[in-house]
Structures are given as structure tokens and as C-alpha cells.
């Protein structure tokens, strides 16, 4: 399955509509989430040669699911024009110490939005 991209020249009216209405990446779907709020999750240790929204600094790290944002198209495959592959996106909290070691302030944290395909059970 490949995603076709239009080569049509964008009109001024289409540009105006896009600026005002935006372009939703959310998908209406009853796809069940793989994780629940409160779950501990681990970012996968993968090194794709292709496009990914999984930052290198978080790979292998364990965090907590804080919120389920709903279902979105998956940029890692959309970026290659392969498939929309809709899935849940979660706000995941990682403590600064989990990411950067004991020298980081114990109170501080980093929040990332990660897709089902980026995560596994630790």
C-alpha cells in the first residue's frame, strides 16, 4: 500500500483554507489502545534507517503513560509514503534521572508523545 501525493498546483484559495482549517492527523477510530494511563512503558531500542519520530535519546528508557491522546496516523510510515497505519499516541513522562542519570535534578521530567509502535512493556 502506498500513499499517493497530488502534484496539483495549490491555488491561493486552497492555501487560505489550509492555513485557517489546518490539516488534522487524527483518525476517527475505535482501535483499542495497547497501553493505559499509569502503565510503565519502555521506548523500543531500534535504529531505523528511515524516518522516525522516536528520538534517539529516549530509546530503551522507561516512562509512565500520563495521557492517551487518541488515534493518529503514524509519521514513521507516512513519511515514507507507505501507509497511514493509525495508532494511539500517548503522553509519556520520563524522569530526568531516567534519561540523563543521577546528576539530573530528581524533580525534573521530560514529556514525549509516543505511538503504540514506539513502545513495549518493560
Amino acid at each position: 500500500m502506498t500513499i499517493e501525493t497530488s502534484n496539483q498546483c495549490m491555488t491561493a484559495a486552497a492555501a487560505k483554507a489550509l492555513l485557517q482549517q489546518g490539516l488534522s492527523c487524527q483518525v476517527n477510530s475505535d482501535l483499542p489502545p495497547q497501553f493505559q494511563v499509569g502503565d510503565l512503558v519502555q521506548a523500543k531500542v531500534v535504529h531505523p534507517a528511515t524516518y522516525t519520530r522516536l528520538p534517539r535519546y529516549v530509546r530503551g528508557k522507561v516512562g509512565t503513560v500520563m495521557q492517551d491522546h487518541g488515534v493518529y496516523v503514524f509519521p514513521d510510515t507516512v513519511g515514507q509514503r507507505l501507509a497511514t497505519k493509525p495508532q494511539h499516541v500517548y503522553s509519556v513522562r520520563f524522569s530526568a534521572q531516567a534519561l540523563w542519570g543521577q546528576a539530573a535534578p530528581a524533580s525534573d521530567a521530560l514529556y514525549l508523545d509516543l505511538f503504540d509502535d514506539h513502545l513495549e512493556v518493560p
Binding site: 487524527q26 499516541v89 524533580s107 525534573d108 514529556y111
Partner: peptide, 30 residues
């Protein structure tokens, strides 16, 4: 992401240890 407090200090904002710093990396579509 790795040293938010130093970055904030360079912007002139020094935060006490009692304040929790939360960094939000907008890596997806939000």
C-alpha cells in the same frame, strides 16, 4: 532536553530547586 535549567538561566530565568521543570518535546503531531 538535557540541561533545561542551564538554558533557562541563559535566558535570564533562574529557577529554585523547589520548582519542577517539565520539558515537552513536540515530537509527534501535538
Amino acid at each position: 532536553v538535557i540541561e533545561p535549567r542551564s538554558v533557562l538561566a541563559e535566558f535570564g530565568l533562574v529557577l529554585p530547586d523547589t520548582v519542577e521543570v517539565r520539558v515537552w518535546d513536540s515530537n509527534a503531531d501535538l
